[in-house]
Design a protein around this nucleic acid. Structure first.
Length: 828
RNA sequence: GCGGAUAUGGUGGAAUUGGUAGACACGCCAGAUUUAGGUUCUGGUGCUGCAGGGCGUAAGAGUUCGAGUCUCUUUAUCCGCACCA
């Protein structure tokens, strides 16, 4: 017999207590290891469906298992929700708090290119390391539900979902100009381009025509905005998503293109505008250089060479060059005109790179009087500027505010609202336009020309076009390849796996080729929270029963940087599954919060190159997991950036030592009476900690406990109830310490399964209160009187104060304001 | 340029939401114990005056008996988006 683990190998509590009674120092290393082993052996955090208990699903973003290991930023989020999960558990909820790994991604692949180590091998090692680190911090994850996205048993379902997208027409292949990172040799989604640079490696992104798989997220744009009303997301997240989706209401109007004499060329140019009411002020039109009409009408231009040259120059410009240089350039398409449908006048047509091909219709009507960009362009090309809204001074700049319409025919005298309605009605009646909603959001570029991702389960057949493989053949596993390097043609390394690529068409049985691009690293994370509900299911991605019980995620915490990436993608993905009837609710997350970043002590981001990275392993080694956890909660307001400080960490370490030291003063006698002050201190602490955890004010929750511990330190002897209450409150933050001291009090149960204390507001109340006494709002002293004393008593007591009486000499009291239990203000 | 946030001691930060500004912690100072030392304990610590007192929440104005908190103006820093018609 190895003895009882809880008693460090001793068989009885008595044997064990002989040992620890001699210990002066809190031996966190032994103690933390001991409890982690016990929790693991007893599967203390394993959960199952239990219809008799209310569920609570707490979720944190699963990490990418990088070679660098856990960053001190990760535990900020994980500890916060661990605290919440543990408290909910103690409050009787059936809590699901899972962890997994988002294991596909470029770093493993780049590492493979450098070293030849297969990404599966390095990823596996990294996952093992992450798991060890996470376990060393004592998080209450249900490890039985852990999975990673590069496991075929998992990505089988990612592929299956892709096929469902395809079947519903939401996955399509399209040749288009995409963002291309020349260093990673990979296409990027809009969301992955930061200031014209690759989000991963920082290389300037260029534009490149490529055939890409796309997911039609724009079909959900409206619902992605509207349904934000149904969920409890912090405002920052909501507004960022709304701005990113960029809904705008306006109209599409058709401008006929004509030759110089005014005969129609059969090219109705459709423009998008948010201000159809200003059409009387349109003095020219502009098409994006890539607009198909520009090429189609090439023979009509008298300056075709110049036009051609401009088109080529634009194509060469990177996204960054194109957007950073705001001086207007362009070329008039000489030989053609556009007819303003409101005035009938013929106006010039230009091409310019300030008109974007991907937004609206790729063509605009220019109102230089009321749009600064059009104004700038008109100045460069000396075009007429016609004011149609009263106000401003258009000789200096465009007037972009509202105003009464002038020079606008039937709209003269109208305000914006009436004129908008009138303009759209006119366009509809005359058949050249209609109202239209547009979005900045683009469809999701879903192909990556790389290796380490989910293979896209599609094949191309000469006869049948693109076809999905049979669902019974899933998972389509990633083949081994000898060389992971992508090539400059933009082919995936998979293109060289000839045997794998050549296959048969699932429809006609003829020769076919597999898609060699893989999915982006956002694919696996778009639905992982569903898998946690039923992670070992090999028949479905999750059973109906499990989804009905566990979904939605009740509380999801993660980084702001995912607001327009993972968070938006997964909401879209989930809505699609909902529309297909595969998930019970249209939104996956009830509540979303976000933590601030942790910066290095120098206020900079932690990075290898700066050499200011704090390694969590070293902190755990030197101070212990509890200190680390508690410090991350105490470091500052949870939603704001925080700077790492080893000195402050030391303060938390001292606090833990103090809690340990108090144990010696605890009365063995359980029935000892507490006085009113004791009860007040205890209940106040319970109420504060409870409330502050719910509000994520972890830093002040910790200070409440520090205040309580300071109170206990001043006592000669501590009633057991007071100390036990402290341990219960502390348990979510410092579970090892709480568990150890709980056991030393003689308990044989685990404290993590104990109930959360309930505070009594009455007992927490003071019976005497201190009021501030002010004269004309300036502090003159304080009085202590009974709580809820009559106003007259407070007044009388205040006037008796020496300080007040002295200063009252020779002045008359105008009035006295008494706010019960707060303040007495004497106005003179 | 647009959108969002932040601004309080030497430092990180509190403030019951309009009612004693600076909780809690770090640091610092003094003392005690131990000491070769970072340990531990006690007391002090916004600024300023000998003192009654005065001044203090980025700056300026306003509302109020009373403003860190509400309104307006300005400034600084951080983050996101950026020719989206």
């Amino acid at each position: 017999m190895a003895g009882n683990a809880r008693y460090n190998g001793k068989n009885t509590w008595e044997e064990w207590s002989q040992d620890w009674q001699n210990e002066d120092r809190y031996n966190f290393r032994t103690i933390e290891n001991k409890w982690q082993k016990i929790w693991e052996d007893e599967k203390a955090y394993k959960v199952d469906i239990d219809h008799n208990r209310q569920k609570f699903y707490a979720l944190v973003e699963f990490p990418y298992p990088s070679g660098a290991g856990l960053h001190v930023g990760h535990p900020r989020s994980y500890t916060a929700l661990d605290v919440i999960a543990r408290k909910k558990r103690m409050q009787g909820f059936n809590v699901l708090y899972p962890m997994g790994f988002d294991a596909f991604g470029l770093p493993a692949e780049n590492y493979a290119i450098k070293t030849g180590v297969h990404p599966a091998v390095s990823t596996k090692a990294n996952i093992a390391n992450f798991t060890r680190q996470l376990k060393s911090l004592g998080f209450s994850f249900d490890w039985d539900r852990c999975f990673n996205t590069c496991d075929p048993e998992y990505y089988k379902w990612t592929q299956w979902m892709f096929i469902q997208f395809w079947k519903h027409g939401l996955a399509y292949k399209d040749k288009m100009a995409i963002n291309w990172c020349p260093s990673c040799k990979v296409g990027l989604a809009n969301e992955e381009v930061v200031n014209g640079h690759c989000e991963r490696c920082g290389t300037e992104v260029i534009r490149r025509d490529k055939e890409q798989w796309m997911l039609a997220i724009t079909k959900y744009a409206d619902r992605l905005i509207d349904d934000l009303e149904k969920v409890d997301f912090i405002d920052r997240v909501k507004t960022t998503q709304i701005n990113w989706i960029g809904r705008s209401e306006g109209a599409e109007l058709t401008f006929e293109l004509t030759d110089n004499s005014g005969s129609n060329l059969g090219k109705p140019m459709v423009v998008y505008t948010t201000r159809p009411d200003t059409t009387f002020g349109v003095t020219y039109t502009v098409m994006a250089p890539e607009h198909r009409f520009v090429k189609e009408l090439m023979n009509n231009y008298t300056n075709a060479t110049e036009v051609q040259k401009y088109i080529e120059e634009t194509a060469k410009k990177s996204e960054l060059q194109r957007t950073s240089d705001t001086t207007k350039t362009g070329v008039e398409l000489k030989g053609i005109k556009a007819r303003n449908p409101f005035t009938g006048k013929l106006i010039p047509v230009f091409i310019s790179d300030y008109v974007l091909t991907g937004y609206g219709t790729g063509a605009i009507m220019a109102v230089p009087a009321h749009d600064q960009r059009d104004y700038d362009f008109a100045k460069v090309f000396n075009l007429p500027i016609v004011q149609v809204l009263a106000g401003g001074d258009i000789s200096k700049e465009a007037w972009e505010e509202d105003g009464i319409h002038i020079n606008s025919g039937f709209m003269d005298g109208m305000d914006k609202k009436d004129a908008m309605a009138a303009a759209i009605k006119f366009a509809e009646d005359e058949g050249f336009g209609h109202s239209k909603v547009n979005f900045k959001l683009r469809d999701w570029v879903f192909s990556r020309q790389r290796y380490w991702g989910e293979p896209i389960p599609m094949v191309y057949c000469e006869h049948c076009g693109w076809q999905p493989i049979n669902e019974s053949e899933l998972p389509l596993t990633l083949p081994d390849v000898p060389d992971y390097r992508p090539n400059d043609n933009g082919d995936s390394p998979l293109a060289n796996a000839t045997e794998w690529v050549n296959t048969t068409c699932p429809k006609c049985g003829g020769k076919a080729r597999r898609e060699t691009d893989v999915m982006p690293n956002w694919a696996g994370s778009s639905w992982y929270f569903l898998r946690y509900c039923d992670p070992h299911n090999d028949k479905e991605f999750a059973s109906k029963e499990a989804l009905n019980y566990w979904m939605n995620v009740d509380w999801y915490n993660g980084g702001m940087e995912h607001t327009t990436l993972h968070l938006l993608y997964s909401r879209f993905w989930h809505k699609f599954l909902y529309d297909c009837g595969y998930v019970p609710m249209p939104e996956p997350y009830n509540k979303r919060t976000s933590h601030g970043m942790i910066l290095a002590a120098d206020g900079e981001k932690m990075s290898k190159s700066r050499g200011n990275v704090i390694n969590p392993d070293e902190i755990v080694e030197t101070y212990g997991a509890d200190t680390f956890r508690l410090y991350e909660m105490f470091i500052g307001p949870f939603d704001q950036v925080a700077m790492w400080s080893e000195e402050s960490l030391n303060g938390v370490y001292r606090f833990i030592g103090k809690v340990y030291g108090l144990f010696k003063k605890v009365y063995a006698d359980k029935d000892i009476q507490m006085c009113a002050d004791d009860l007040r201190a205890m209940h106040k602490c319970i109420l504060e900690v409870t409330e502050r955890i719910d509000q994520m004010k972890f830093n002040t929750a910790v200070s409440s406990m520090m205040t309580y511990v300071n109170y206990l330190s001043e006592m000669e002897k501590i009633p057991a109830t007071m100390y036990e209450t402290l341990l219960r409150l502390l348990c979510p933050f410092t579970p090892h310490l709480a568990e150890e001291m709980w056991a030393r009090l003689g308990h044989t149960s685990l404290i993590i399964a104990e109930s959360w204390p309930v505070g009594d507001a009455k007992l927490a109340q003071e019976d005497m209160v201190t009021l501030a006494v002010q004269m004309n709002g300036k502090m003159r002293g304080t009085i202590t009187i009974a709580k809820d004393a009559a106003k007259a008593d407070a007044e009388a007591a205040a006037l008796k104060l020496d300080n007040v009486a002295r200063q009252l000499e020779g002045v008359t009291i105008k009035k006295i304001i008494v706010v019960p239990n707060r303040i007495v203000n004497i106005v003179v």
